[in-house]
Design a protein around this nucleic acid. Structure first.
Lengths: 224, 224
DNA sequence: GCATGCCTGCACGAAATTTGCACATCCGGC
DNA sequence: GCCGGATGTGCAAATTTCGTGCAGGCATGC
């Protein structure tokens, strides 16, 4: 049976959630603060996490960010204020959906079912690497919460690099990935894009994320 | 039947693991500390090892490092803290996966099945020899955890040597392996590369890892 | 039509590597 | 102990690979 982790600092709300969700046939377990949420979330026990954003100390966004480093568990956000919503609709968090307070239990359960039904295919393969997040499908890139504007080519190159973390990709491989085979583009062109990409990543704080291995190729570094 | 070695200093956790794993149809046997783990692990009886990182005395990382010198048995780490996770994701350890405490037995079993199913094809052929680890695909070289920077040629030569441990390779063979046949490079050139390689390995602590057999060729020594 | 942004890729300087010469050493056989 | 071939070493030229500044070509939006 799928188990759902409920995270909210308000016991009353936790209880409402618990009842609604269990009545829908899912198991539940709870966390009252960010730290506990993180610990339980990382256990892998949860098939989905209902996560309140507004919590003292470690808030939901932060918990989500941490969790995403090691897990792709679906997350459904609970939000109280409109401006919180703005912060999660972006890809930043890798949130799967959100529900505003006050919410109707019935709607909440419906959202949960929808998320679980669409199953694993978290649809868009969102690439993560350290503080760097890339969603090629939506053409979005963020570093530690700040969004970075990339051009089409930059996005393609970065996506290819990120989909093979740590691996050294030869220039021809990269060119093929971006332009398709049997296309003739100069190595200098690739370099130009790499330069722009590096510049942007550097500015956003990911210094030296793209490494050059002389005579071999390009590698996606840690992006600490 | 596949037998799984459970290593943890906490008897309670060992028991949880034992029950979960046996219920999944695997046999188990246990070790309560690093020394025992090493002894049992080297016996070759285990088809997989579940290894706790946080143990007094000889910790899991050290056990893994030792085991890797002589075995490719799959290892699933148990970790309690995030910073431990950081240390194993690198290639250094050759860990196959990890599970955070507290963990759900179900997930643990799922991970075990996944690892065993994916079988041997540990994907990238990673060369190991004593404290020396070489990953040609990632163009990474590590000695006892410290990374060593190699150039393209050095990497090729070392890879060739490591893929024939203890065998003496004639110079022509080495040259062919690196440059392809019917290429004309001076023996002095190979010597130059060997010199640089030796220098780097020495500095990193692997002294005399590359031996010369006068009149015959080059051999990859133990790299103690 | 014009401004703006992106894609390409040329020319050139900067670096990182590779190569191998000239000479010192070493090894093994006699 | 001496000799010739096999190796190791210091060094610097030759080569290969990169990064950068810059400019033309295009497509898009106004």
């Amino acid at each position: 049976m799928t188990e759902i982790l409920i995270v909210d600092d308000d016991p009353a709300i936790r209880n409402v959630l618990k009842i609604a969700i269990e009545q829908a046939g899912y198991g539940t377990f709870e966390a009252a603060d960010g730290d506990a949420a993180l610990r339980l979330g990382q256990s892998g026990r949860a098939g989905l996490i209902v996560l309140d954003i507004g919590m003292p100390e470690r808030d939901g966004l932060e918990v989500c960010r941490e969790l995403r480093k090691s897990s792709d568990v679906p997350i459904l956000f609970l939000t109280a204020r409109q401006d919180e919503i703005d912060r999660i609709v972006g890809l930043e968090m890798g949130a799967d959906d959100y529900v505003s307070k006050p919410f109707s239990p019935r709607e909440l359960v419906a959202r949960i079912k929808a998320i679980l039904k669409r199953g694993q295919p978290t649809a868009d393969p969102i690439l993560r690497r350290g503080r760097l997040t890339l969603d090629p499908h939506r053409h979005l890139c963020e570093i530690g919460g700040a969004s970075v504007t990339l051009t089409a080519r930059e996005m393609e190159i970065l996506a290819k690099l990120m989909s093979h973390p740590d691996h050294v990709l030869a220039r021809p491989q990269l060119v093929d990935a971006v332009y398709g085979t049997n296309v003739n583009v100069s190595d200098r062109t690739l370099d130009s894009h790499l330069r722009n990409l590096r510049h942007k990543l550097d500015e956003a704080g990911c210094i030296d994320a793209i490494e050059t291995v002389h005579g071999v190729g390009i590698r996606m570094g840690p992006c600490a």
